[in-house]
Amino acid sequence: MDSSFKPKPLLNKSELRQIKRSKTRVEGKKVITDDVKKLKSLKVTPELSFQESIDYYKEPIWIEYYIPKESRFAFETKYLFILLVDPQTTDEECDLARKEAQEKNEIVDVFGYMESHPDSIRLIEDSYHSTMSMHETIHHIYRNYKETGATEDLKTACYLTEALLKYEPTIAGLTYFRDYSIYNLNYWIRTLNRLKIDFALEDATVSLLIKRRNELWEIENREEDEDFDLLAALFFEQAFPNRGAGELSSDDMLLFE
């Protein structure tokens, strides 16, 4: 790695200064707002119908803040609703399997793909030799769900799909099913939402969902959502409390109480 490389912090210097000045806390840690009224005014959940909420991942944000007049700490849970953004499809070969799956409202079944495309077996096995058992498990859970309606293993399929994100991109993925893992993850999230099955994703995965949502907002120049931005900032500070600390100068350290 280039020695000059410096990862971009999740929080910028201005936000870090705000954290140090703040009287508001998340899990005992200061967070990005010194306006307790603003924090308390955040809606617990946005105004969405059940059908609309299916297209969102819901992340709980635990908030603790101090009320000076009452000399006590208050504890609340708000929810960050993250719109699920599916990858775009093209007519390129690498998107055809995902395009077909999307049209049929199915997952991209990597293990099943080999059955119908025997010429792809060698490349897929070479690319997924260390994760083939995960793909096979997802394949059987999905088929069982479609054939019998059994839902007890759907969370397992979701978590395995989440784990597979870490193994992409692969040669087979880039050749036959580009971006299949995020597409499949969105599929499982929507399915679990529709069935009202509770589940929770890793912080790194939630960060990815936030990033994809924010990229869509930027590309389409959508109106900013201050409540979402604040809750997202609270999530990052809670999930990654030490990120960005390296950006502080010695003067910034004086802001610590």
Rank of each mutant, 00 (worst) to 15 (best):
N144M: 05
T137V: 07
D179Y: 11
K37D: 11
G112Q: 03
Y57M: 05
F73M: 10
T24N: 15
G246D: 12
F75Y: 11
E218P: 07
E92W: 10
E162M: 06
L185S: 00
K20W: 06
D34K: 11
L11A: 11
S249R: 09
T170C: 01
G244R: 00
Y180T: 00
T170Q: 04
L160R: 02
R190H: 03
A204E: 12
T170I: 05
L96D: 07
R190S: 08
I63Q: 00
L84W: 00
H140Y: 15
Y65F: 11
H129D: 14
S49N: 07
L84E: 02
Y159T: 02
L16G: 01
Y66W: 10
P241C: 05
T205A: 10
P118H: 06
I107A: 05
S249T: 11
D153H: 14
E226F: 14
P241K: 04
I219Q: 15
T137Y: 09
Q238W: 09
N184E: 03
E125M: 13
Y128V: 01
L234Q: 01
E226R: 12
L84A: 04
G244K: 01
L234V: 04
H117F: 02
L16H: 03
K196V: 12
E27V: 08
I61M: 06
V26F: 06
E215L: 13
S181K: 12
I182N: 01
H140I: 12
L208Q: 11
R222E: 07
V36G: 04
K37Q: 14
E125G: 09
H129F: 12
E223C: 07
M253F: 12
E100P: 05
Y176M: 08
T205V: 08
Y145I: 04
I67C: 08
G28Q: 01
E218R: 13
Q102D: 13
K146E: 12
T191Q: 14
Y187W: 10
L39Y: 02
L234E: 00
L195D: 03
A233P: 03
S49G: 11
E152P: 07
N193V: 00
P87N: 00
K69D: 14
F5A: 05
S3E: 15
Q88D: 14
M114F: 05
T175E: 06
K58A: 10
E136C: 09
R222Y: 07
N105D: 14
Q102F: 10
H117T: 01
S130T: 13
Y128L: 05
D95W: 05
T148E: 08
D252E: 03
K69S: 15
P118W: 08
I171W: 09
S71C: 09
Y187F: 11
Q88P: 08
S130D: 11
Y56V: 03
Y65K: 00
R212N: 13
H135K: 04
L248M: 14
T131C: 07
S116C: 12
K37T: 07
T33Q: 02
G149E: 02
D225V: 03
S250Y: 10
G244N: 00
E220P: 07
L209H: 02
R25C: 08
D95F: 06
Y128A: 02
I189H: 01
W62T: 08
H140Q: 14
M1Q: 11
Q238Y: 09
M134K: 15
F73W: 12
A245G: 06
K104N: 14
V108M: 00
F199A: 04
A157F: 03
L160P: 01
L16N: 03
